[in-house]
Design a protein around this nucleic acid. Structure first.
Ligand code: FES
Ligand code: FES
Lengths: 140, 140
DNA sequence: AAAAACTTGACTATTTTAGTCGGGTATATA
DNA sequence: TATATACCCGACTAAAATAGTCAAGTTTTT
C-alpha cells in the first residue's frame, strides 16, 4: 500500500521549489539535478500540476514553474488530486449499486474501508507543503 | 492507493467467520458462497492466515477454520501483516543507507511519509475485527 | 470406501506502473 | 534575428505487481 511515484515525486518537486525558488521561476532541470528525478518524468508530472492550477509556467530562457499558492496554503491533498492519486481503499465502485463482490447490498467491510479513507484523507487535507519544510529545517 | 484484494478479502472472510461461526469451524466453501469470493483464492489466503496463526484448521468433513483469537482481540494490523500487506508509503528502503533517489541523505519528503505510515498503521492497530461487526449490526 | 474439506506449489493472463521518446512551441538574450 | 533554453504534449513500452486458476495431493468423518 503506497502512493505511486508520480505523486511522491510531485510532492518532492514542489517541496524543492518551496525551498529553492527565491520568488523566481524554478526550472525542471534544476529540480531534476537537485532531487535526482528524471527530467522527462518531471515534465509529465508538471503538465498535470499545471492543468490543475498548482503551478504556473514561464516559458523561454530563465523560465520554469512558480507555485500558484504559497507553501503555507497548499494542501498535500490538492497535489495528490492533481495526479488522480485518489485514496480509495474501498473495493466497490462508490456510486455503483453493486457491492465489491457483485451483491446488491454493501459488504461487511464497506463501512470499515470508508472510515479508513476518511482517516487518510484528513491527514492529507490537514498537511500543507510548508509542514514538510519545517521538519527539514529542524534537521539541519 | 489501496490495499490488494488478498488483504481486503482476508478481512472480509474473517469478519464473515466472526458472524457465522457458532463456535464451530467455518468452511471456506460457505465463506465463498456467502461473500462471493472465489474458493480457490480463499484457499490461498487462508494458507497464509494459518501460517501466521490467525486461524487454525480442522480437516475432514465438517472441518473448516477457527479464529485463534476472539474478534475482540484480533487487530486488523495482524491480518494485514499475515498477508505481507505492509503500509510503506515511503519511497526508500527503510534500512538502506541510500535515499529514494540514490543520494546518501534522506530526501525532503522522507519524514512526511514516515508520519503518514504511522498515521495509517495506528488506525489498523486500534481497530479490532469486532469493530467491523458493530457498524454492521447498527445498519440492520 | 467415499465425500468433504484442507494443503501446497506452480503457473498465467491482465493490469498497472514507471519511465522514455519524438517532435513540437515560446521567449530571453547576445 | 539567431540560438539556446525551457516548457508542451501525445504516444509508446518494458517491467513489475496483481488477481486468480490449476493440478495433485492429504486428512478425517460418516
Ligand atoms: S467495499 Fe463496498 S461493498 Fe465491499
Ligand atoms: S522517502 Fe526516504 S529518502 Fe526519500
Amino acid at each position: 500500500m503506497k502512493l505511486n511515484t508520480k505523486s511522491r515525486y510531485a510532492v518532492m518537486a514542489l517541496a524543492d521549489m518551496a525551498v529553492f525558488s527565491n520568488d523566481k521561476a524554478v526550472s525542471l532541470r534544476d529540480i531534476s539535478l537537485r532531487q535526482g528525478i528524471s527530467l522527462l518524468y518531471l515534465e509529465q508530472i508538471f503538465l498535470r500540476l499545471k492543468k490543475n492550477n498548482i503551478v504556473k509556467s514561464v516559458r523561454g530562457i530563465n523560465g520554469g514553474y512558480i507555485l500558484v499558492k504559497s507553501p503555507k496554503e497548499l494542501k498535500i491533498s490538492d497535489i495528490l488530486l492533481a495526479l488522480d492519486q485518489k485514496v480509495k481503499t474501498i473495493g466497490c465502485k462508490k456510486d455503483s449499486k453493486k457491492s465489491c463482490n457483485g451483491k446488491s447490498t454493501k459488504c461487511i467491510t464497506h463501512n470499515f474501508w470508508d472510515e479508513l479513507d476518511i482517516h487518510i484523507n484528513s491527514f492529507f487535507e490537514n498537511k500543507k507543503l510548508s509542514d514538510l519544510l519545517k521538519s527539514r529545517e529542524a534537521r539541519i
